[in-house]
Every structure is written in C-alpha cells, then in structure tokens.
Design a protein around this nucleic acid. Sequence first.
DNA 1: GTTTCGGTTCTTTTT
DNA 2: GAACCGAAAC
Length: 644
Amino acid sequence: MNKIDFKSVLNEEQYNVVTSGHGPLLVLAAAGTGKTHTLVHRVAYLLEQGMKPERILLLTFTNKAAREMLDRVNLLVGQDIYGMWGGTFHHLANRILRKHAQRVGFNQNYTIIDSADSKTLMTQCIRDLGFKTKEFPKPQVLLSVFGLAVNMELPVEEQISLRFNDGEHNVDDIIRVYDEYENRKLNMMSMDFDDILKKCLQLLRENPDVAERYRAQFDYVLVDEYQDTNSIQANIVDLLVKGHNNLMVVGDDFQSIYSWRGANFENIMSFLDRYENAEKFMLETNYRSVPEILDVANACIGGNVHQFKKVLRSTRESYIKPSVVTVRTGDAQAKYICQYIMNKKHEGYKYSDMSILYRSHFHSMELEFAFLRQNIPFIVTSGIRFFEQAHIKDVCAFLRLILNPGDELSFARLMMMFQGVGPKSASGLWRRLGASFDVFSKSDRENLLLLLKPVAKEHWKNIDKIFDSISSDNIEGVFIVNEYVDVFYDKYAKDQFDNADKRMEDITAIAGYIKQYDSLSSFMNEVALLTSLDEEQQMGVAQDVVRLGTIHQAKGLEWPVVIIPWLAEGMFPSRKSIDEESLEKIEEERRLFYVAVTRAEDELCLCVPQISRAKTGGYIPCNPSRFVKEVPLELVRSERPLIF
DNA sequence: GTTTCGGTTCTTTTT
DNA sequence: GAACCGAAAC
C-alpha cells in the first residue's frame, strides 16, 4: 500500500475534511473545488487508518461517478480494494433486495423494468381499464406524478387528488389506474426504479434483523451529491449508520437540480439539525475556472434566496470575460457556434476541449445539422440510453422471459416481433397460456405453438428449438444470444432497421458483456440499472470530438470551452418552469444555469437567439433568458455578430 | 377485428 | 424521433 503525503496533495480545506475524525460530517463543496479529489482521499485515508475496504460504503448518483471514484481510489492506494461497496443508491438497494426479496412479497428473480417498460405498462393499464388515451393524462405524466409521490414518501392517492382535481379529470379513475399499475408489476414479479428504493427502505424498516445486519457490515458510509438525495434515500442512509453515525455527506446546495425526481434539498439544508454533533466543512477554493467565469456564476446564483452562502474563489489568473452573443434564429446560432468552434480549434484547443450544454435534448437539432455540414466531429449524448434502444431491448426481452416466466412485457415484445401479431394478439396469447410462459416447460411450449397463427408459428418453431438444448440449471447466456440471433434476430434486424449492421455489433458487445458475469441471471439482475456499456468501449478512448449534451448529463464534468445555446425565455428557463409560476421551479432552473456556467474552465459563450420556431411552422419572437439579464453588464462581453 | 403504414405533432431534466 | 391517430390492408 502506498503511503500518501496528504498534506502535499490537498489544500487546507480539503486536508481538514480528509483527516477529520469519526461521526457525522457535512461537506459543502462548491463547484470545481476538488470534491471528488477530497472524497477519494478520504477513502484512502480511512484505508490507511486500517479500515477494511468491504466495510466502507460509497454511494453516488451515477454509475460513471462510482466507477471513476473506485478507479481513483485504487490508483491512489495501490492496493486491491475489491470488496468495497461503491455504486448508485439503486445498486445498493437492488443488491440488498436480491437477498431478502421474500420479506417484501417478491422472489429473488424479480425483474427490474426501466422507464420505457414502465411507460408501456402504464399505457396498457389505461387502455385495458377502458379509458380513452386522449381524454386521459399521458402515461408519462402519470408516471412522473406517481413516482414523485413515491420518492417523496407522500401518500399517492392524496397526491393524485391534489394534482388532478381540476374538473377536467376524474380522480377516482386515475387512482384505479395507479392500483392497476401496482398490481400488474406484482403479478409480473417486476419492480420499477422507484420500487427498488421504496421496497429496500420498507425492508430495512420492517425487519430490524436485516437492518442490523447491514448496519454491522459497514463501519463507514460516504454519500456523494447529497443535495440530490430524496427522502427514501436519506432514510436508507439514516438507517444504515444508526448507532455509529460514521457518515460523510458531500454536496452543494447550489447544484441541486433533481427536485422534479423527488430530490429533497432539505436533506442537506437540515443535515446539521438531524445529526446533532455533525461537523460542517466548506470547500470554496475553485481550481477549475478563471475568475471572470466565477464572477458570472456568483452573480447568477445570488438570485436565489434559499441557500448556504458560499462564494467561489478562483486560484487562476485573470483571463477574458464570458461572451454573450445575440443571434437571430436557431440556425444562425448553429452557424455562429460552428465558426466559434473552428476559431478555437485554430487557437489550439482540441475539439474534445469544447462542450455544448443545453437545457433539453431537442436544443441540439440545428447544431447537429450544422456540424454535419461543416464536418465538425461531434458526439451527442442523447436521451436514449444504450439499454433502451429497440434492438437491445428485443434481445433482453428474450433473456428476461427465460429467467422470469411471469414477465408479460417481455413475452409481448417477443410475440409482436412476428408478422401479424400486435398488442391484441399478444395479450390474448398471454391470457390463454395462463399468464405465464416457462420456456423450460414442454407443455407451455407446445401450447404456444398450437395457439400461434401460421406465419408466427414458423418463426417461433426455430426459436423454440433453442430450448431443446438448454436446461434451467445451467443457462448459457452467450450461447442463447448467439442462437437467437442466428435463427431469428439477424434477419429480423435487417428487415427492421436501416443500420442493422451497427445494431448487430451492439448485440455482439452484449454477449461479450454477459461473459464478464458469473451467470446470466446476475447480468440480467443488473442490466436495467446500467446506463451504458463501458463508455470507453462504446466510443473509443478519448476521441477528439465536440461533446453535445444536457446540463444534467454534464454534472461533475468540465471543459476548457463551454457554450450554452438557447438562452431564451421558454427554452432556458423551460416553458414549463415559467408557466408553473413557482419560485422553486425557477430557482432550480437558475441552479441548472449555475451548473452549466461552472463547467467552464477558460471560456464561456452564452448564445441568445431572438426568435424561435413556432409549433405551426412560423417564427415567434422570444425574450432573452432572465439568467442572462441578471448578469451585470460589466461582467460580460456583449457581441452581436452582424452576419447572423 | 387487428395489424400495419403513413402522416402529423411535439419535444425537460435521469436511475 | 417517437408517439399518436386515422385509414388502408390483411
């Protein structure tokens, strides 16, 4: 194990955090102040003090953050830290639930349904209860209302009444849909993302022996991005550290941008009240951005009332002020950004030094076209995640059904790939098979063959043969995927997609991924919680491309040059947040703007279009974003390029 | 009665 | 680009 000279690699603020004693710690780490650096060294310090890796729990918000931190700890201590628990809340909850699912009315092999599945299921619930989709709230809307209630631990029925008691909707009908949705998940032995957290908390609350077991397992718990935890997550943490209270939470209330998902800002604001002898530390020395950028950040966040006062201090030399560029349209903006990027490239920046951060995915549209025309290499981190793409889901549905005979969604997905089978036939088949299809049951397989129409039957016959050569006690994932592709999916993909080759490569990658797990079920148990395959694997290591993505996705990242487009009222802040007229919504948008600004190291470019495309095709004028107007004029360079 | 296809509309943010 | 709707095709 390497001996680390903590004094020399940490500043005083950081050193105090890293070497502090046991008990609850609140670390308020402003943007760019070396939060990850500090966390990683704290873990290293604990290990150096003799703590066992498997007795440390590190909770993060994204898989990426977890991986990064574990890698860095590993590198730092030069010792095997295998056994350390590091991952997202959902991962922790899933890992605990897999062991004790019976205690909350599930069995070990429950399936996790992702947001796309949830939506499909919700649509089915609405239809099957006989409601016309047009007059009913959209599945997405219902899911977000239900999910919000669950994550905030509020009674769902009450929230439904509050939200939909507007004369336009029938509250009782919506409650019926909610009950139906819950029932179906239970029947299918499935949990959605919210259930994972909810059931885990329920498990720990109702089973003191289980809670005690995990309490005894961890000597120390660290939580990253604490400002984004919701009520359930905070409660899980509270239960896990009860007794020793060896807990370090790190966060920045300025960067709380997930309240729409139930994140409770108050968790961090009231931490000192909930944990009586907690110590508070502040990290305010910023190593990332030039002072001119921090001036804008400090000025913008000043507009928010509810906050721990923090001021970012730069360690860097003065450079240039951020620019505010007014352009006419979205297309003009795209052209300007192209030129801007090419200029920076000439100045010596790499493409990968630059990033475009926007409020919503659709803000990237004109930019993508312009970049293609100008041959600027770019990558869009789109809204659809790797595991939510159609071809991936097709293959996973097949694997899921093998492991969980009650998985109606997967069964339906599989059947509907056959010519002539739509939603009605799929659910009819399911019903006639007795709401279960076990691929290891000879009678189930024979029944299905009898029920299928000729065309579908021919397809299924080929797939059915796969099950002749496998047994339920030794399921070879890779073999099954390959067979499935050979006898059916390869051809299907070619008929279905114009980029079938690329998609089939993804499927090969999945097969490779499955190999890394010790069984197919251990892979499938986690697959819904994975955002992507290894990012490096996916797009090659460190390609020199401009990155486009949402601000939410950019959290924790940094680039020398950052461009923020669509700074117009209705775009950023979003139309929804304006229409709701709630101070909290707007404050969250402002924090989002703050997050975007603080991603920039050297240069920041704010783009303000004057007109946007209307729904009908014409143009409508739009006002400059209030966030730009709030920045004092003397802190920025205002440009109005004539040709745009 | 179902499925499929083509045209139209509208995009918040994620585990 | 995906979700929804209406109409054609099976």
